[in-house]
Simulated scan of single mutants.
Amino acid sequence: MISCKKEIVIDYHEADSRYVVEGNISATGSEIRVSKTNAMDNNSTGSDVDNATVVITGDDGTRATIPFVRNGYYRSKFKAVAGTEYLLEVDVDGHHFSSTSTMQRTPKMNEFRLVRKKMLTERYLFGDLRLQDIPNETNWYFMHIYRNGIGYRWAVMKDDKNPNKELQQLFTFFRDGEKGSDVLQDGDVLKIVIRAIDQRAYDYLYSMQQMSSTGTNPIDNFTGGCLGYFSAYNEIEYHQSFYYSDVVEDEE
């Protein structure tokens, strides 16, 4: 056996560091993380920012300055109210970033099943999530499945296909016979988080979902030139332990 190695030089261009703001406000409180991107040859994922002024204002007249806690996080018990539009403003080192988001009503889950379905010549295991659409309004949803506390699958959905009725989201888990760390094991704990979000948050997350196929960055959610997004949302959680004995066959 003969092996060889070759040094490959990657021709990349240095980019200026940019601020990143990841903010949310819900029925339980507010959390904003402020950081900066690092150079490509820096192994850390980002640099925390602890000197920002973070303010959230509602169009109902409410307003709160969100205090710094640690590691780039700013947290408060300032809660969102459904139907209220919130403005997040972040000032740091002479930069001003802002974004808005409208708080939604609480979503409702009808059912979550583990389903085995045939796709072409292969059989796959799916997570079949059913939601009851919030009636008489346009809605957008963000769904995130965690496996043993670690993010596993996520998706966004809008109610244009079956408004006011039941909505379905299928998560592809893995193919029959597949091996590896991504395959679920008996006893794994699944946590399903369902958020009702507004259109601005949906548009950002949808563009992020398409990144692998489009080769582009997500759309801007903030003014001022920072990365990240802001979302006001209501959410519910559902917990279920995974067992192969619970998987149902779907012949449709």
Rank of each mutant, 00 (worst) to 15 (best):
E85F: 05
E249F: 04
F112W: 11
R147S: 12
V54K: 00
P218E: 03
T100R: 12
M208N: 15
V54G: 00
P218T: 03
R130F: 09
V54Q: 01
W154I: 12
L167I: 01
T62N: 03
G72E: 03
W140N: 03
L88V: 06
D128C: 12
K165G: 11
L205F: 04
K6Y: 10
N136I: 10
P67N: 05
E235F: 11
E251L: 14
N136E: 14
N139W: 00
N162R: 04
G58D: 02
E166M: 07
D176A: 03
E22Q: 15
I32E: 01
G23T: 01
E251Y: 13
W140S: 06
G46H: 11
L114Q: 10
P107K: 03
E137P: 07
D250K: 09
H239P: 05
Y206I: 08
T45F: 13
S207W: 04
F142V: 04
D176V: 00
K158W: 06
V92R: 05
G177L: 00
A52F: 01
S17H: 15
Q199G: 02
H96R: 12
K79L: 07
Y73C: 13
L120N: 13
P107Y: 01
G149A: 09
N43Q: 15
F222I: 01
F97S: 04
S98T: 12
S241P: 05
D246W: 01
I66N: 02
C4Q: 12
D198G: 03
Y204S: 01
D91E: 15
E166L: 05
Y146I: 06
N148A: 09
G228V: 07
F174E: 04
F174Y: 08
P67W: 02
Y141F: 08
F230H: 12
F78D: 04
K79S: 14
D50T: 08
L125E: 10
Q240W: 02
V49H: 00
F242D: 00
A27K: 13
A201G: 03
S17M: 14
M208I: 09
I32V: 13
E89W: 00
I134V: 10
E235I: 08
M109K: 11
Y12G: 12
L190I: 09
T172C: 11
L205W: 03
L120W: 13
I150K: 14
T57D: 12
E249T: 12
E14M: 15
R123S: 15
F174G: 02
R113K: 15
P163M: 02
G94E: 06
D188W: 05
H95R: 11
G127Q: 06
D93G: 07
I192H: 09
F242L: 00
F112M: 11
L184Q: 00
G149N: 10
R153A: 10
I219E: 03
A27N: 11
G225M: 02
Y146F: 11
S26Y: 00
P218K: 01
V69N: 13
M40R: 11
R147A: 09
E89D: 08
V49W: 00
F126N: 14
M143D: 06
K191A: 14
P218W: 01
G180L: 01
E14W: 13
K117T: 09
S44I: 12
T223V: 07
D250C: 12
M40P: 09
R75Y: 05
T62M: 05
F173A: 06
V92S: 09
